[in-house]
Amino acid sequence: FYSKDMILEVVMISNINLFSFFLYFFSTGLTVSYSFRLVFYSMTGDLNCGSLNMLNDESWVMLRGMMGLLVMSIIGGSMLNWLIFPIPYMICLPLYMKLLTLFVCIFGGLFGYLISLTTLYSLNKSLFGYNLSVFLGSMWFMPYISTYGMIFYPLSYGQIVVKSFDQGWSEYFGGQHLYQKLVNYSQTLFLMHNNNLKIYLMLFVFWVLILFNFLLFI
Results as ranks from 00 to 15, higher is better:
Leu117Asn: 14
Leu110Thr: 07
Phe135Ile: 13
Ile210Lys: 05
Leu182Asn: 11
Leu93Thr: 01
Phe173Trp: 09
Tyr96Ser: 07
Met142Tyr: 15
Val104Leu: 03
Leu8Cys: 10
Tyr34Lys: 02
Glu171Arg: 03
Leu155Trp: 04
Asn53Ala: 13
Leu70Val: 08
Tyr34Pro: 04
Leu69Lys: 09
Asn124Asp: 05
Met79Tyr: 14
Tyr41Lys: 14
Ile7Pro: 00
Tyr153Trp: 12
Met192Leu: 13
Asn53Pro: 03
Gly108Ser: 06
Tyr41Val: 11
Glu171His: 01
Asn194Ala: 10
Ile210Cys: 01
Tyr41Ser: 10
Phe22Asp: 01
Asn194Lys: 14
Lys125Ser: 10
Ser3Arg: 12
Leu63Pro: 01
Leu215Asp: 04
Leu38Thr: 10
Met97Thr: 07
Leu197His: 08
Ile115Lys: 08
Val183Asp: 02
Tyr172Glu: 04
Ile115Phe: 08
Leu127Asp: 08
Met139Leu: 08
Met67Lys: 10
Gly175Met: 00
Leu30Asn: 07
Gln187Cys: 09
Phe40Leu: 14
Leu83Phe: 12
Thr147Trp: 12
Met6Gln: 03
Arg37His: 00
Tyr130Ser: 14
Pro143Tyr: 13
Tyr113Asn: 13
Ser156Asp: 02
Phe19Lys: 06
Glu171Val: 02
Thr44Lys: 01
Val161Trp: 06
Ser156Lys: 08
Ser138Asn: 15
Tyr153Asp: 07
Leu215Gln: 07
Thr188Ile: 13
Asn124Ile: 01
Ser59Tyr: 10
Leu100Glu: 05
Leu216His: 13
Leu63Ser: 09
Gly45Cys: 04
Phe107Asp: 02
Gln159Ala: 10
Tyr144Phe: 13
Val39Gln: 07
Leu211His: 10
Leu18Ala: 11
Leu178Cys: 05
Ser35Ile: 04
Ser116Tyr: 09
Ser156Trp: 11
Met97Ala: 12
Tyr24Ala: 15
Tyr34Ala: 03
Ser20Gln: 12
Phe214Met: 06
Leu110Trp: 13
Ile16Lys: 05
Val10His: 02
Ser170Met: 01
Tyr41Asp: 03
Phe85Leu: 00
Lys198Gln: 15
Leu18Ser: 11
Glu9Ala: 06
Leu69Trp: 09
Trp60Ala: 12
Cys92Trp: 00
Thr119Met: 01
Arg37Cys: 04
Met72Asp: 05
Asn124Cys: 00
Met43Asn: 11
Gln167Ser: 00
Met79Lys: 09
Asn48Pro: 00
Val10Ile: 08
Tyr153Lys: 12
Ser42His: 04
Met139Gly: 01
Asn194Glu: 15
Tyr24Thr: 03
Ile151Gln: 12
